[in-house]
Design a protein around this nucleic acid. Structure first.
Length: 418
RNA sequence: GUGGCUGUAGCUCAGCUGGCAGAGCACUCGGCUGUGACCCGGGUUGUCGUGGGUUCAAACCCCAUCAGCCACCCCA
């Protein structure tokens, strides 16, 4: 029979890597709880229109990266390419604004984008996502950045760069776009790279982010967003930075930082690492004040970020294997079922480990025990069955002693052999 | 969507100008009636990614296709 293989860009997350994912989610849960965030679990499939309206019709994500298909009744569905849209849909649909003034939510799970896979980029990837809805305060922007930094620090990831920018708002951004347009108009073939010639028309902000030296040189004298922001946006951004400074949080101002999702306004940020290849962005987010009303909800502001779990996993490395408390070696036909009963007693007492299930030589069972690195190897044979004892062997030290069965759980629990 | 590199044992990889499919690790059995690691000896493991083509003969050359990796692009 022909084997069926997984879809391109999709991955099986097996042990021990699955432990890393579990660790990330547990750490997130613990840290986020300190800030008042609660978990939501939302559908992976949504109506296509949700993403067109939130992410933006003209973005790359919507234009060429979505898994979109009709259901059995011909309605267009899309596998979520990001989490914020779905969280906002759920917020509106469940009238969460009626429950509390500020709603703090987080979620973790798979996202789907049809892109060419490479290091740190899969078609099914996983994000931890945080959203805070209901407050326009710049202090909330700062708090969410504190929380993101706190989370990454708790995971123990060094050498991350936190970049911060303000994109302005619908009131002031058009004038900046206009200015950029004006600035780039003069540059033609030979001055800007081919990509930027396209970008200066579609998304002039992206030209500022180009890595080609010639383009970089030109952008040095390009107009700055800061000079075009309205007083309200300027004040907001200054308040965010003041809060970050007061806590002495390390960050860099990135006036060229652009986001590929249309809903972002004012504060935006990105966390990058130089150690994981070209896809260096580990987390990214910002404020999205007009998003909820554009989806038919109340006119409430929001802030959030997404954290890429595959990229975090690249930085975390292999986890320590968990050491079982015991491994039980059973010698002889009668010792096998007796060994299972004994193992079950120990598990009931909160001790973890495995026992032999099939009759094999002492040598092969001991070899297996050695691989599993249990705190103790327990040996149960005919003579131990007869005397109601168990041989307890410390594989690290090579020492062993005979312990009465009734006292075994206590003996194992009190031992300091880790 | 574009470009480059790569697919050979469970894993890591050799395999020359086309001529019997290899090594190390792992696994397994034994040396040691019921004691692991270290040591010694034996043993198992393959549609050479897949499908075509060239050839007396293809893991090797050609075409196609699938998958992986890296980069562009884009983003977490």
């Amino acid at each position: 029979m022909e084997k069926i293989q997984k879809i391109k860009g999709f991955a099986d997350i097996l042990p021990p890597l699955s432990q890393v994912y579990d660790h990330m989610e547990r750490t997130a849960k613990g840290i986020f709880a300190l800030y008042g965030y609660r978990e939501v679990r939302l559908p992976i499939l949504e109506r296509t229109e949700l993403f067109c309206r939130s992410i933006g019709e003209e973005t790359d994500v919507v234009q060429k990266e979505m898994y979109t298909f009709p259901d059995r009744k011909g309605r267009s569905l899309t596998m979520r390419p990001e989490a914020t849209a779905g969280v906002m849909r759920a917020y509106i649909e469940n009238n969460l604004q009626a429950q509390e003034e500020l709603t703090k939510l987080y979620t973790a799970g798979p996202m789907f984008r049809y892109e060419r896979p490479q290091k740190g980029r899969m078609r099914q990837f996983h994000q931890i996502n945080v959203e805070a809805v209901g407050s326009p305060s710049p202090l909330l922007d700062a708090e969410i950045l504190f929380m993101l930094a706190h989370f990454l620090q708790e995971l123990g990831i060094p050498d991350l760069n936190i970049e911060v920018n303000s994109l302005g708002c619908p009131d002031c951004r058009p004038s900046y776009h206009e200015a950029l347009h004006e600035y780039f108009r003069g540059f033609d073939t030979g001055t800007l790279c081919d990509d930027c010639l396209r970008r200066k028309l579609t998304n002039p902000l992206r030209v500022l982010d180009c890595k080609v030296p010639a383009c970089k040189e030109l952008t040095k004298t390009a107009p700055l967003i800061a000079d075009y922001q309205c007083p309200a946006c300027r004040e907001h951004f200054q308040a965010v930075l003041a809060a970050l400074d007061a806590r002495k949080m390390p960050y860099v101002l990135a006036p060229r930082l652009v986001r590929g999702l249309d809903y972002y306004v004012r504060t935006t940020f990105e966390v990058t690492s130089g150690k994981i290849g070209a896809q260096s962005s580990v987390a990214g987010g910002g404020r999205y004040d007009g998003l909820i009303s554009s989806l038919g909800g109340p006119d409430l502001p929001g802030v959030g970020f997404a954290c890429g779990m595959e990229r975090l996993a690249l930085l975390l490395g292999e986890p320590e294997p968990v050491r079982p408390d015991f491994h039980l070696v059973a010698l002889g036909a009668e010792a096998l079922p007796a060994g299972l009963l004994l193992a079950q007693e120990l598990r009931a007492a909160g001790l973890g480990g495995e026992c032999a299930l099939t009759a094999r030589s002492a040598k092969s069972q001991m070899r297996l025990a050695d691989r599993l690195k249990p705190r103790y190897c327990l040996i149960l044979g005919e003579s131990e069955l007869a005397s109601g004892t168990v041989v307890v062997k410390n594989l690290g030290l090579g020492t062993q002693e005979t312990v009465v069965r009734s006292g075994l759980a206590t003996f194992l629990r009190n031992s300091d052999n880790q």
